[in-house]
Nucleic acid binder design. Structure first.
Length: 376
DNA sequence: CAGGTC
DNA sequence: CCTGG
């Protein structure tokens, strides 16, 4: 079967599919080794229905090709959606040259490798990262796909591969149980997923909102980052690390650095970040007013987050993405055969990043406009 | 132990 | 604590 692909000019140093789709941000892109393309299901634009989307980067590495299966009449909508999903309004070259290299020597010997932060669907991001706790990427990938195939809706089957939607909070509450999830190998996270889905259904009803996406976006409205994180941590299985992942990748709070063991190691080893008694006391006082934060936040890790924000600025989360990729190197993703394979780290030759027309034409983000959360 | 949370 | 590499 062949499709009519749309095209988007984008240099590989600005976007490298292998480096962003299989590096632990998203867990549901399927890589077809033979066709050298990626596919998944996603909601396009403001729609609630899921479509199968196929992506590939051509040999010259300067064109991103895309198609939504069975939706060929609406190529522009997909193009607009992908520009938001990949955040093509943000130039990595600009961040390297004008922000990170001048302020951080570690970036001087690095170059943009097409590693960027995605704007993912927040509900899927929340559940995916609940699954990520104390876990490895290949199992997280299996779990996310298991949620879709067991509790999502069948969208279509292509070349023998069945594509499902990511289940909504209602679908999870009505179709899944903790016992069933345990059988499927979710371990102790089974309870977190069920309870989070239930609470989201309840929260949405109280807010009179039907869409998971819209609801989670609505908690950012007129809210500071600290309040958004407090709200996210009201869900079971969501601590500061998971909440920050949702803020960064699901709610596009670009300055948020999720602090895990790796980032913590980088911070101490390469940046000599360490909190003194005053710092920690200040943070404890600050979170005293927020009952859940007070309970869940580790002041020492939160201090690292703040110091890295100070170091890297309003796109600190993106800087973390770059360094993190370097730290853990290649990782695994799923393929059409279901096998989890080691991924080759996709290095880019040192070419001058070309700011494409699409980059200059800043994407209209009107329907995504969420009041920028203030970060200190 | 694995990109934490209870 | 679940599970698996």
């Amino acid at each position: 079967m062949s499709y009519k692909f749309g095209k988007l000019a984008i240099n590989k140093s600005e976007l490298c599919l292998a480096n962003v789709l299989q590096a632990g941000q998203s867990f549901r892109w399927i890589w077809d080794e033979k066709l050298n393309q990626y596919s998944t299901t996603m909601k396009i634009g403001q729609q609630e229905k899921y479509s199968v989307v196929i992506l590939r980067q051509d040999e010259e590495n300067e064109i991103l090709e895309f198609v939504a299966v069975g939706d060929c009449g609406n190529q522009d909508a997909l193009k607009t959606h992908l520009m938001k999903y990949f955040r093509l309004d943000v130039s990595l070259k600009h961040l390297f040259d004008n922000v990170w290299i001048p302020s951080d020597k570690a970036f001087a010997k690095l170059s943009p490798q097409g590693i960027r932060i995605l704007a993912q669907e927040p509900w899927e991001t929340l559940i995916s990262f609940i699954c990520s706790s104390n876990n490895n990427i290949s199992r997280i990938t299996r779990m996310c796909n298991s949620l879709c195939s067991n509790f999502g809706n069948l969208i279509t089957t292509i070349d023998g591969v069945a594509y499902h939607s990511f289940p909504t909070s209602e679908e999870l509450t009505s179709r899944a149980t903790e016992a069933k999830l345990r059988e499927l190998g979710f371990g102790y996270r089974a309870k977190y997923i069920i309870e989070t889905a239930r609470k989201l259904v309840k929260d949405k009803a109280e807010a009179n909102i039907t869409s998971d996406t819209t609801y989670l976006q609505s908690i950012c409205k007129d809210a500071q980052y600290e309040d958004v994180r407090e709200h996210l941590m009201s869900y079971n299985g969501v601590g500061p690390k998971v909440a920050d992942c949702v803020c960064l990748m699901g709610l596009h709070m670009d300055g948020i650095v999720p602090v895990d063991v790796h980032v913590s190691r980088i911070a101490k080893r390469d940046y000599q970040i360490s909190a003194n008694k005053n710092h920690l006391k200040e943070l404890r006082t600050k979170y005293n007013a927020l009952p859940i934060s007070r309970k869940k936040i580790n002041p020492e890790l939160d201090h690292i987050r703040l110091m890295l924000f100070k170091k890297w600025g309003s796109y600190a989360g993106w800087a973390q993405g770059v360094l993190f990729s370097k730290e853990i190197g290649g990782t695994s993703g799923s393929t059409t055969t279901g096998a989890i394979k080691k991924r080759k780290w996709d290095m880019i030759k040192e070419t001058e990043a070309i700011v494409t027309k699409q980059m200059k034409l800043k994407v209209e983000l009107s329907d995504l406009h969420i009041k920028e959360a203030k970060i200190d």
